[in-house]
């Protein structure tokens, strides 16, 4: 366990600090009237988000070994290190760039719900494909923690993942976990706590390798967006989506919803409801 504790550059000394203790975790179930921080659980389908959710909240969300099990948001709460957390289990997605209903729930929450911490749950045995989503989330927010889940399965397949290297490359804390057996949950809580309280500030990896023409276009648009919406934390991502012609984002810009983002409102997302429309 001790090796797993070294999750980021800063958290190593926390091994000895009293906060590093599951005893501090108070599972609140669905009892969460007021909270200090909102945590979103995102990740590819079938990586164990609901298992982590259950481990943190003490709830028994039904878990199952098949992709697409969670199609709505599930919410729960826990208390850790003196702060109350609301945690939202999002449907699994491969990408934030497509438009199916379950993926939209996840994308809208990360963008419009403005969680204080987004935990990206990844499958350690299929890291490369999982990183596609991680990189997209890191485009939106720097307040992220990567849970390198199913590390027990990776071990079974003789894979070793250098989580320190990964943390350095991604610029956010990386915690190896095996949620089924509660391995790494204390370290994950600690990392969530540090990011939420601002003790750790991520410098997330931003997508490189764009063609030069693209880079210039993004810069120009970002400048304009930042001027219109000062304080918007993810202008670059909004620019990317505008360039891609994402109608949902264009609508959001038109209706001034982006303005709300810079204030940081978590209520809004609850009103996002998308009935099925058929001609």
């Amino acid at each position: 366990m001790s090796k797993n504790g070294s999750t980021t550059k800063t958290s190593a000394p926390c091994e000895t600090c009293p906060a590093h203790n599951v005893g501090n975790l108070k599972k609140l179930g669905i009892n969460m009237d007021d909270w200090d921080y909102v945590v979103a659980l995102a990740g590819n389908p079938n990586t164990g988000k609901s298992t982590i959710f259950n481990a943190l909240t003490g709830l028994h969300q039904h878990t199952g070994n098949w992709p697409g099990k969670t199609v709505t948001r599930a919410e729960g709460g826990f208390e850790y290190g003196g702060s109350r957390y609301k945690i939202v289990d999002l449907p699994g997605t491969y990408s934030l760039l497509s438009t199916s209903l379950d993926e939209e729930v996840a994308r809208d929450f990360i963008l419009f719900g403005q969680p204080d911490v987004t935990v990206i749950v990844t499958d350690a045995t299929r890291l490369e494909r999982n990183l596609n989503l991680v990189l997209q989330v890191l485009e939106i927010t720097n307040r992220a923690v990567v849970a390198l889940n199913l590390i027990d399965e990776a071990r079974r397949h003789n894979l070793t993942v250098d989580e320190r290297r990964l943390a350095r490359d991604l610029g956010v804390p990386v915690v190896p976990t095996a949620a089924r057996s509660h391995e790494g949950i204390p370290e994950l809580l600690q990392a969530i706590h540090e990011v939420a309280t601002g003790k750790v500030v991520g410098k997330p990896h931003r997508i490189q390798n764009e063609p030069p023409a693209l880079k210039k276009a993004i810069q120009q648009l970002v400048a304009e967006i930042e001027q219109a919406f000062p304080g918007l934390p993810n202008a670059r991502w909004v620019a990317l989506r505008l360039l891609d012609g994402d109608r949902r984002i264009i609508e959001a810009v038109k209706r001034g919803e982006l303005g709300d983002l810079s204030i940081g409102s978590t209520e809004r997302v609850n009103s996002i409801d998308m009935p099925l429309e058929v001609a």
Binding site: E128, N132, T160, R165, H205, Q208, E210, D244
Partner: peptide, 22 residues
């Protein structure tokens, strides 16, 4: 554009994963 962007993401993901996983 979309393809370029996805390509950039995939390239980065592959590079980072390659360095971290043995």
């Amino acid at each position: 554009f979309h393809d370029h962007l996805m390509e950039a993401i995939y390239t980065d993901a592959a590079r980072i994963a390659d360095r971290a996983v043995s």
